[in-house]
């Protein structure tokens, strides 16, 4: 008896539509964000995450309207990320109805942004998103994970585990951890990455990238030691409902909210 592990459907949004990419690149349409949010809420989603992948900053207001509309109909935590560069962006998203704001590239460029936003609005609403790629070190025959920014296009030289620890110290309330090698592959999470980060920090870790079936969700919790699992395509195209996912996790001894 205690805290439930969370299932978080993720909605990548551009031009007012939910889309799904493969390895951060090819996109296909998955529907209307407000309608999809309502459906996941009815199915028992524990939270919703929206990533605004709009390329042009001119179109950023669209996500605000979507969040405003979702927030009047869906009463579970809403996280929004994508294009957050300054504290004013955090404020705009919170004012639109977001409960948490996810910061990725801007945290690498300016770590103080995380501390400033947490000081203003509380750690509970600051999520640091980390996109990591596995690197094989031939000299020691070991692997580590490097942080990438700009939607996965730019290497930073930062080690993902160390970066997560630093962000926890700076005031992140939670880490959203995506394996870029796995994202869109439907191959399952990068469990060693998820576990390494989860064991290194005291704040919750959301596992992301690679979910293709319900066993992957179970693995993310039991082997990856994640506190929450995030998935997109398995829910968007109706393969599984959130409720089916939760029932499956319950059968595997994972405590969820049913």
């Amino acid at each position: 008896m205690g805290l439930a592990k969370r299932i978080i459907p993720c909605l990548d949004v551009t031009n007012g539509r939910v889309v799904k990419g493969v390895n951060f690149i090819k996109l296909r349409d998955a529907g209307d964000p407000v309608e999809i949010s309502r459906r996941y809420d009815e199915q028992g989603a524990d939270e919703l995450t929206f990533l605004d992948i709009t390329a042009s900053s001119d179109d950023r207001d669209l996500i605000l309207h979507i969040i405003e509309e979702v927030a009047t109909q869906v009463f579970i935590p809403l996280t929004v990320g994508g294009g957050v560069r300054q504290v004013a962006d955090v404020r705009r998203l919170l004012n639109a109805g977001a409960d948490k704001v996810s910061i990725n590239t801007a945290a690498v460029l300016n770590p103080q942004l995380v501390a400033d936003a947490a000081a203003c609005y509380g750690e509970q609403c600051i999520v640091v998103a980390i996109d990591a790629r596995q690197v094989h070190d031939t000299s020691t025959n070991s692997v580590h994970w490097e942080v990438f920014t700009h939607g996965g296009r730019r290497a930073t030289g930062l080690d993902a585990v160390e970066w997560a620890k630093k962000m926890a110290l700076f005031g992140a309330g939670e880490i959203l951890l995506t394996s870029m090698d796995k994202d869109g592959t439907r191959d399952g999470f990068n469990l060693s990455l998820i576990r390494a980060v989860s064991e290194a920090i005291d704040i919750p870790v959301i596992a992301s990238g690679g979910v293709g079936n319900l066993d992957h969700l179970v693995e993310g919790i039991l082997q990856g030691q994640a506190d929450a699992v995030l998935a997109a395509s398995i829910f968007h195209y109706g393969e599984y409902t959130v409720r089916q996912a939760k029932e499956y996790m319950t059968q595997h001894g994972i405590e969820v909210r049913l």
């Binding site: 008896m1 205690g2 805290l3 439930a4 592990k5 969370r6 524990d46 750690e123 509970q124 309330g173 939670e174 064991e199 005291d202 704040i203 919750p204 870790v205 030691q225 506190d227 929450a228 909210r257």
Partner: peptide
């Protein structure tokens, strides 16, 4: 007290306490 908190299976518990509890 994050350092001393474990669940029934001995896994460490995260702080903040975040999510759905009974």
């Amino acid at each position: 007290p994050a350092l001393t908190m474990k669940d029934d299976s001995g896994r460490k518990l995260k702080v903040p306490h975040m999510g759905w509890n009974q």
